[in-house]
Design a protein around this nucleic acid. Sequence first.
DNA 1: GGCATTGCGTTACAGTGGGTTACAAACGCG
DNA 2: CGCGTTTGTAACCCACTGTAACGCAATGCC
Lengths: 250, 250
Amino acid sequence: METSDCILIVDDDPEIRRLLVDYLQRNGFTAVAARDGREMWHALDRHVVDLIVLDLMLPDSDGLTLCRDLRARSSLPMGQPNIPVLMLTARGEEADRIVGIEMGADDYLVKPFNPRELLARIKSILRRTRALPPNLRPETARCLCFAGWCLDTAARLLTAPDGVATPLSGGEYRLLRILLDHPNRVLNRDQLTEMIHGREAEAYDRAIDVQISRLRQRLRDDSREPELIKTVRGEGYVLAASIETRNSCV
Amino acid sequence: METSDCILIVDDDPEIRRLLVDYLQRNGFTAVAARDGREMWHALDRHVVDLIVLDLMLPDSDGLTLCRDLRARSSLPMGQPNIPVLMLTARGEEADRIVGIEMGADDYLVKPFNPRELLARIKSILRRTRALPPNLRPETARCLCFAGWCLDTAARLLTAPDGVATPLSGGEYRLLRILLDHPNRVLNRDQLTEMIHGREAEAYDRAIDVQISRLRQRLRDDSREPELIKTVRGEGYVLAASIETRNSCV
DNA sequence: GGCATTGCGTTACAGTGGGTTACAAACGCG
DNA sequence: CGCGTTTGTAACCCACTGTAACGCAATGCC
C-alpha cells in the first residue's frame, strides 16, 4: 500500500487553506494546514511532510525567513529533511520572485493562481524529490521501506518481503540506517566508519567489509536479484533502492 | 578540479543564444548553444549537459515534443539521468505553462525575461538535481538491444541472441555502455579511457585493447558473423549496430 | 616481391581489492 | 562469574584489471 505524499499548507487566509487542503486531498495527497510560522514548526514536528506550500506574508514572520530557517536547519546532519518549498504570494513583482528562489524556495507561484497549475508544480517538484534521503527525525518512530524490505527504526526489526522479521544487532542497524539515509550514494569506508563509530578508519581496516557482508546475509532474499548493497570497486558501497517512509511496517 | 555545470541553450533566435551563452558564462557556467532539435541531439552526444534551456518554438520540431523525447529516451552518455529542462517561450498563456510542466519540464519562463531570474531558476533546479543520486536511477530498468543482443542496464546482464544471460564485470559493462551510447561512431583510445576511467590515457596504454578483446569474447556468437565491435586501424573502435531501447529484455 | 615497421589480438601473469569464514577478544546480562 | 552475543582481525580465495610479451596482419618502402 502506497502512502500518499503529505503537503503542508502555510497560509493565514482560512479560505485559501480550506480550498487547497480540499483540492489536494481530492487529488490523492494528504494535506495539512498551518496558520503561521509557529504552527508550521508544530506541524512539522507531528507529520512527515513531503512539501510545503508557503505563503510569503504571514502574521508572525514572513515566508522568506521561514524558508531560510528551513534550509538552515536541514543542513544539519541529523536534522530535518530538506523539505521542498513552493512559495506562494500575492505580490508579483519580479524582485520578489528572484529573492524567493534565491532564498531557497524551489518554485514560486503568484496569487491568484489556478489550482491545477499548483498541482502540476507540486508534482513536478515531488517527481525530483522522491529519491532524496529521508533523513528522519529520531523521535518519530517510522518505518523505512525499500525493495520489499522494511526497517522498523524503533524496534530495530528488519522485515523481509515475505513478512518474516528479524532483529538486527546494533552495528548492523547503524550501518543499514546510514545506507538508507544516503540511498544511491557511494559511501566509502572512511565515511562509513566515521558515521558508525565516530572514529577514524585505520589502515587496512576491514571491519566495514565484514559488517557489509553480515548485513548482506540478512538482506539475502531467496530470489536471486542483484544485491541491494552494491560494491563500487575502489570506492565503497551503495544501497541502490528508492526509500519510502511509513508509519508502520507492512 | 571542479568542472562548472554545462547549460545547453536551444533557441532559434541567434540574439538570445548569444545573450544567454554570454550571461551564463559570465556567471560561472559552461554554456553550449543549439539552433534546433537536430543540433540539440548532436550537442547532447558530445557534451555532458547538466541542464537544458529549451525554447518552445523551434524550426524543426517544437520544444514540447523534444522534452517528451528527452524523457522517453534518456539514453545519453553513461546513463545520464533525466536532464532537467527549463522551458522558454514567448507564449505566456496559462494552458501552455501547465502543459509544459506536465510534459516533463522542470520549470517554465516566459519571454521576455530578466536573465537574472533565469539564472536564479537554473540554480534552483540544479540545487535540487545535485541532491539526486548522481550515479544510478534505480527506478528506470531499461534494456539496450542491438543485433539480437540485449544489455540489461540495471542488472548489468548481457543476454545473447539464444537467450543465455551472462553478468558483465564493471569495466566490461562501462565499455559496452559507452559503445552503445555512441553507436556507429569511431571512438579512439583516449576518448574511451577518458570516458571509462576519467583519466588520461598514458603512452603505450593498451588497457582498452584488452578490455575490447574481453568484451568481444563475451559478444562472440557461434555464428561466424563479422565482429560487432569493429576496429578502425589507427583510429579506434566502432560498434556497428542499431540500438533499440526497451523496458525489458526479450 | 621482400623486408621492416607499425598496429592490433590474444594470452599469461601479477597486483589489487573485495567476500567470506574462522577465531578470538570484547561486551552484556543474568 | 558463566554464557551467549557481537564485533574486529586475520587469513584465504576469487574476481577484476592493467602490464608485458608474443605473434599475426596490415602497411609502407625499396
